[in-house]
Design a protein around this nucleic acid. Structure first.
Lengths: 358, 358
DNA sequence: AGACAGTTTGGAAGCGCTTCCAATAAGACG
DNA sequence: CGTCTTATTGGAAGCGCTTCCAAACTGTCT
């Protein structure tokens, strides 16, 4: 099975020593190049890189972690028990992406769940920190909005990446997510262009500051359109299907009824759909409904939901990669660590939105 | 922060040497105990175990893999690109569970996706084998039903665990999943007891042999009930929401129409629900519908689906653990490797089923 | 030119574990 | 009771990598 690339001495996978001897340098030097360490002449650097290329060398992560005394262990921290939550597609996809991202880089990953009670949660997370077996953590919403937590972690020198955090949290830790404000504006504009003036809005849980920006998007867009007589009736749910039903019911009682109902996520929108059907109203004939996230759900409900697509798995994946980079070589390499990554979103128009009733 | 447990010498986490000195044996002996190796006196064994307990010692997986020359690398293999499939909750949950299970044991995991074309898929998987960088793989349906693949892998001595495979595949590789036949009978019995006699059945993709057992369950139960005049109208879909719509439409055209419609998974059942609504029929007044899997979906559609709960994440998780055990110490320890694990399922009665029309 | 600081290299010592191999203890047998 | 097996043990050599430390340069300043 001999290819035409230089063969490693022992017949197996190439090791750092194979690279070293091919490049004509010491093992130490190769290691330095691999880790972007300082003090290697440019010429040598390239020579080593060529050798790496030629042998298709991949560093053995296990050996690296062992030698470097880095645990290679990172944790993904969720709030509450997503396994028992019925509508956890969002969380499952996020975690799946993150897990895959970590796996790609040979990191050990643990998934931790903390209590929904903030007091208990803080305690649990502090304990995790103290144990010091993690080199970094990924925080999912709404943990990613917890300033106290972030500050605490920063003080302890722990690498942290937040998912979908409120923009100003970036000061404490790099974050990755879509531009919720812009996304909110996109969906609001879609509705306004159709002619809607009376809006209903179903909020999610209060702690999720990033998701709240979607509402800001609606407000901004309404202000920008400078429409007289436009207004918004608000209700607050918990991101679940059932809370969507209840919020929508309350909103439907108002008079005059809104002609468009924006929901902070797809699950609540699905609930709203049900409540509206029950009330004997037509969608979108009597009222248009929008969701957020574009989970599989949104194609399956009736009518299919107009929503904003968010690359959830991708976001999880990129968050993991970001964390790996941060742990890799703090700031000594290229100097700057990424502060924020904005993933791209887009409006998905389906059949739950249309012209307002005449 | 000293607890009252013996402290490891270097102040950090306890190592195998700490255990050895506490137990008064050599490092080698501890290693043997840890790996269930042969040739250790019972007394010593216990003493070592106590020391492990006392120190709360956890083996360092990185070091183990490095020393043992085991790659610690395993792969989860799916067919087709689940990232682009809209209804992938099932796959996402399965993979999430497996990923978590692997992570718990410090294994490196890669996720691979192979082509839906069997020819191409076989080729891709062979290539993976040849590269030999995986110590074992987890196969998800319908790959877990591919006899050729299984035989091939076995011949190469690769550790394999199948998820939800057809029972007789156990000869080739251990499998884990629920008892689909029993689950099918459970749901059929529920319908028969309600009084249904005319059935519709929406099959999934033909290759998924395990899922096909759900249909066998219906047949068996019908035979057991010995009802005269009972029959089943069959259609075959692709496990997707849209295929569910189409199959249900065709079934609704038959006359007399079935009073109960069983679907091989929740997504198709959701499609069926839509088709039935469109036909202006009542659920369950005119026709009862059942799904399978109990994905989040089943609570959100209208009416909520009667379905069979399957612990998908748990199955993925246990599959990973099983694989880890297999890789760990082949068969030398307790001699017998587990052949099959049956996860528990249960019927979830919601509002999509009821008495047949008078 | 000599002394010193800063930069670039390589040697060697491990990281925590498995495993080969030699050494010892325990039975089995004549 | 001595000899030959066989079951138990420990010593020591790595696995592939990072990193400490000393050696060899390079250039700068007097």
């Amino acid at each position: 099975m001999g290819g035409d690339r230089p063969r490693p001495s022992n017949g197996g996978k190439p090791t750092i020593d194979d690279v070293a001897s091919l490049a004509g340098v010491s093992r130490t030097t190769v290691s330095r190049v691999l880790n972007n360490g300082p003090n290697v002449r440019l010429g040598l650097r390239d020579k080593v890189r060529e050798a790496v290329e030629a042998l298709a060398f991949k560093v053995n992560v296990q050996a690296r972690n062992l030698a470097g005394r880095t645990s290679g262990q990172i944790a993904i921290v969720h709030q509450s028990d997503i396994d028992t939550e019925p509508n956890s597609y969002y969380h499952a996809a996020l975690e799946l992406g993150a897990l895959r991202g970590c796996a790609d880089h040979g990191f050990q990953v643990a998934t931790r769940t903390v209590s929904p009670d903030p007091r208990v949660a803080h305690q649990q997370i502090r304990t995790m920190f103290r144990e010091q077996w993690v080199a970094g953590i990924i925080l999912t919403p709404p943990l990613s909005d917890d300033r106290i937590l972030l500050a605490d972690a920063k003080r302890r020198g722990l690498a942290i990446v937040c998912i979908s955090a409120y923009p100003d949290a970036v000061a404490a830790a790099p974050a990755i997510g879509i531009d919720d404000l812009a996304a909110g504006r996109d969906i609001a504009r879609h509705l306004i262009v159709l002619g809607h003036r009376r809006f209903g809005y179903v909020h999610g849980l209060a702690g999720h500051r990033s998701a709240e920006r979607r509402f800001d998007g609606l407000r901004h867009e309404l202000a920008a359109a400078a429409i007289t007589g436009a207004y918004i009736i608000e209700e607050r749910g918990t991101f679940t299907f059932h809370s969507g039903i209840e919020c929508a019911q309350r909103i439907l009682e108002s008079s005059p009824r809104p002609t468009a109902l924006m929901c902070a996520n797809d699950d609540m929108a699905a609930g709203a759909l049900l409540a509206i059907h029950r009330a004997g109203l037509a969608i979108p004939g009597d009222i248009s409904v929008t969701g957020f996230d574009d989970t599989p759900l949104s194609e399956i409900v009736w009518p299919p939901l107009t929503t904003v697509h968010q690359p959830i798995k991708q976001i999880g994946h990129d968050a993991a990669e970001l964390l790996v980079v941060m742990i890799g070589r703090g700031t000594d390499a290229d100097g700057e660590r990424p502060r924020q990554i904005t993933a791209s979103h887009h409006l998905v128009e389906r059949e739950s939105t249309g012209l307002p009733p005449a």
